[in-house]
Write a protein that binds this DNA or RNA. Sequence first.
RNA 1: GGCUCCGUCGCCAAGUGGUAAGGCAGAGGUCUGCAAAAUCUCCAUCCCCGGUUCGAAUCCGGGCGGAGCCUCCA
Length: 490
Amino acid sequence: MALRVYNTLSGKKEEFQPLVPGKVGMYVCGVTVYDYCHIGHARANIVFDIVYRYLQYSNYDVTYVRNYTDVDDKIIARANERGISSQELSEEFIRAFDEDMAALGLRKPTHEPKATAHIAQIIALVEQLIHKGMAYEAAGDVYYSVDKFPSYLKLSKRNMEEMQAGARIASGELKRNPMDFALWKTAKPDEPSWESPWGAGRPGWHIECSAMSSSLLGSTFDIHGGGRDLIFPHHENEIAQSEGASGKPFVKYWLHNGFVNINQEKMSKSLGNFFTIRDILKSYDPEVVRFFNLTAHYRSPIDFSDQNLEESRLGLTRFYEALAQLEIALSRSDADAEQGSVPESLAEPVERLAQLEERFRTAMDDDFNTAQAIGHMFDAVRAINRILAEESNLHGQLQGILGKGRDDLLRLGEVLGLFGSDPAAWLTRSAHEGLADAGLREAEIAALIAERRDARANRDFARSDQIRDDLAAKGIQLLDSAEGTTWKMK
RNA sequence: GGCUCCGUCGCCAAGUGGUAAGGCAGAGGUCUGCAAAAUCUCCAUCCCCGGUUCGAAUCCGGGCGGAGCCUCCA
């Protein structure tokens, strides 16, 4: 089955056919670097990280471009507040962005261009638009003339008359049409600026993406992504600029991810429910954050709440516990054990395990349906646990089946950026999180476990159970097994 | 007002014409000294009302409820 993607431009799912067979050019709008990234940025970047990974998994040669917009009104304003240069500010937050994305386990794009490193291309593009009559200069500013681009608003499917009714021209702007937008802004005092045919100035928002994408991917490429909120005006304007200049279709498939809500409310600074990635990673494992993002479809809104994150933590724990048990069973099993056939009772889980990859692909081929893909992976976990529950001593054939199951799970998990940690280590780390809140130290727990072990050996179950209940009251769950007793936070 | 979109089990969430994935929570069984984990079994007819169809959660119309965009925004 072939990959199908939902294209915002057509409003429906389409079969994905790259311009050049086997190769994909993909551009995703990065961030304007003037502050720390919030969890909405995390979602967008995780979503397109998955797109990138899945295309690579599907054997495409992908060129992934994600830009930094490092010249902008907000950067200038923030830099002035702090009394530093725009460049210092943007460099600081580019570093922060890189750290955040690395923490979230994102694969590095092929190219991460900066707007300020493409001023020459931007100026050339603006000149071209003026030359073609699509743009005009006015007092050092250059504006795009939306009236010259008949298919303007084709992406956002809005109505020009009504948009115009609501639009206003800010004082000092010399627009012919209120919907016209700036390609180049004349420099005000104390602003970063570059020399141009229209005097010193700087690029407007939107033009940098047109310039960088065409520089790195050509005038037509396959996928352009970003958050829904970028559809208008940002992406609409990119289309107008790029197609206006080249006369060729800009992008074949437009992909947009849904929003992040906080406790069912829109995330916004005014509501005070704004979380940076750094804030969240203080409380939650990055892999939990990623897992949470992938349990819903990328186009749907997701609700960021403690309860939902907690559920994701439990879900991810289920995977790691199964993987940890699998490691133990596989290491313990005897390679020389006599070959045995798979018992009839395990035919179904064995079959389910065998189908994992095919099901995963079918789900992901359907517009990157990670929620369904994870559902299939949970099925595989149950199949693994079932086999382990029934056959603690793996014979040759089952060993091979489970070994392949483990490999499949890890390989497909990697396509989603999951299960990359050593299972035992992840579980230990997870167990220790929150330990301080419980007011306990590991050594104390270990001592109590030892005391309980002795009590149990003496069949003093009253004492044994008391220890367990006391710890349970503090949120510590003891887990007895043949290998001894471990613990975790409930 | 215009344009998008959503309303599926207690909660989260897939499914968009062929008879409701999965996770969490819950009930019961197995395992266990007892538990936990694991496993097995059970647990929804899809906001409401019409219509199209052999057949609809899925399509159409009308309600009701919710969200987003239209200004910077992932």
